[in-house]
């Protein structure tokens, strides 16, 4: 399988099964519409006749030979070696956990999938230290021989329950030596309750921190008001800058959501960079289509154009000003994730679970409150392995739409929660998310192509 596209003045060719990426001329681009394996020794006469109206016959023959050579080298129309590895996609130890440490929030973000902290459960509550400790014990037990474990403090707003966050970290650390484990903690916060003590603790203990902000003040404040209705932008930007300035080289992200209200979201990304943040993620809203801010298929042309604009702006920024990293344009063409991750993605429901304040276990934070996917309860010592096995076997070869998609080894079958919420089945990818994902991937590959060209030119000039 191949995928080819035109973007940024380039003709780009991806060999899906090998991951090979090529920049091709117009002739190759057109010729690939007319030939495919099994290749004849020479370019078929009807193809020569057809394309000779635009290109020279000698060039067509030469180009055909190049295509056949790459095919013989196994980097064009290459075989699919990955399906055999899908048999390895079996139930794994649990190695990551999302702790809903606070099922409550001091903000009222309009698009919040957690329904401003309540998770649709109609009540607000904080996780007790006792439940948090049981969750850590569960993770240690279910992680079997895995040494490296991740715990994400999530909400609602986790800083509403900061004392339990601190004591949970302390408790987990106390188990590391005894059980030969290494905990890595992350936290996602809206920033309102950040102060010097919390910043110091987060920067000491949290391997990564996600700081929620949507971008420009008017964009952020429209969707992210406080419980009292006023905007949050002015209350958080200085605190975020303070946290990041003290963080050294540890990971962080400022993370925003774009909606139908800011389809010009490239301006929000660049605004966040202008505020001094280098690590930025701005992602499409997940919302019921009946809401006025939900994205729809009619928005796709504008969204696509905006990602192209963003790629241009990032290129220009890097050239003129310095570093910027946009999460969804990150692409490692040299190595990237291992095969199982490429096939199965985040590991939700299998390697990764979420725990509610009441000790209920779900496949991930977005499934919390969906009774059908409640996997068990810490107090009752229950854990549904049938659900775990269902998620373990949910990969790009068991999702029929994914199996034939060119982007499958990069998107890994999409988000199981989005699939369920939008399509009622974790195996049915949400088409709108797919289209956006594919566009981002094309932009990311284009940026790599430009990087390659630039390096190539520099090498030639230096030699």
């Amino acid at each position: 399988m191949i995928h080819k596209f035109k973007l940024g003045g380039y003709n780009i060719l991806l060999d899906v099964n090998s991951g090979g990426v090529h920049i091709v001329d117009n002739l190759t681009y057109d010729l690939l519409d007319n030939v495919q394996p099994p290749f004849e020794e020479k370019c078929p006469q009807d193809v020569l006749t057809k394309l000779s109206k635009v290109y020279k016959v000698e060039d067509i023959k030469e180009c055909y030979d190049e295509i056949v050579l790459l095919y013989e080298q196994g980097v064009l129309y290459s075989s699919d070696d990955y399906e055999q590895y899908s048999l390895k996609a079996i139930s794994s130890p649990v190695k990551a956990m999302c702790l809903l440490i606070a099922q409550d929030c001091n903000m009222r973000c309009k698009y919040c999938f957690a329904e401003t902290g309540e998770y649709g459960l109609g009540k607000r509550m904080l996780m007790s230290l006792e439940t948090a400790k049981k969750a850590i014990d569960f993770l240690v037990e279910k992680s079997a021989n895995r040494k490296n474990l991740e715990v994400d403090f999530f909400g609602g707003e986790p800083l509403l329950n900061f004392d339990v966050v601190k004591k949970t970290v302390e408790y987990a650390r106390s188990l590391e030596k005894k059980f030969d484990k290494n905990f890595r903690f992350t936290i996602t916060t809206n920033g309102l309750l950040l102060d010097d003590d919390k910043i110091d603790f987060i920067n000491k203990e949290m391997y990564n921190v996600v700081l929620s902000i949507d971008g420009r003040k008017e964009v952020n404040d429209r969707m992210r008001p406080l419980a009292g209705g006023q905007g949050s932008y002015d209350k958080i930007t200085k605190k975020y800058a303070d946290l990041v300035s003290k963080r050294g080289d540890k990971d962080y992200y400022v993370r925003g959501t774009y909606t139908k209200y800011n389809l010009d979201f490239s301006n929000d990304v660049m605004h966040l960079r202008d505020l001094g943040f280098e690590q930025i993620s701005v992602e499409p809203v997940v919302a019921d289509k009946s809401t006025p801010y939900a994205l729809s298929a009619t928005d796709l042309p504008q969204i696509f154009e905006e990602y192209e604009k963003l790629a241009d702006k990032i290129l220009k920024y890097k050239k003129e000003k310095g570093f910027i990293n946009f999460f969804h344009f990150m692409l490692d063409l040299d190595q990237g994730p291992c095969a199982i991750k490429r096939l199965r993605g985040c590991g939700s429901g299998n390697e990764y679970v979420a725990v509610s304040p009441e000790g209920d276990i779900y496949p991930c934070h977005q499934f919390v409150g969906i009774e059908e996917y409640k996997m068990g309860n810490l107090d009752e010592h229950t854990f549904n392995y049938d659900i775990k096995n269902e998620f373990a076997a949910a990969h790009v070869y068991t999702k029929s739409d994914c199996k034939k998609c060119w982007a499958k080894f990069y998107c890994s079958g999409g988000c199981n929660a989005n699939n369920y919420i939008y399509c009622g089945d974790i195996h049915k990818p949400h088409k709108l998310s797919c289209e956006i994902q594919k566009k981002r991937l094309e932009c990311a590959i284009m940026l790599k192509a430009i990087e390659f060209e630039s390096k190539h030119q520099n090498d030639e000039e230096n030699s």
Partner: peptide, 11 residues
Amino acid sequence: MKHIKTINALT
């Protein structure tokens, strides 16, 4: 290669 420039073989 005159027509195809390879940037980078999918671990």
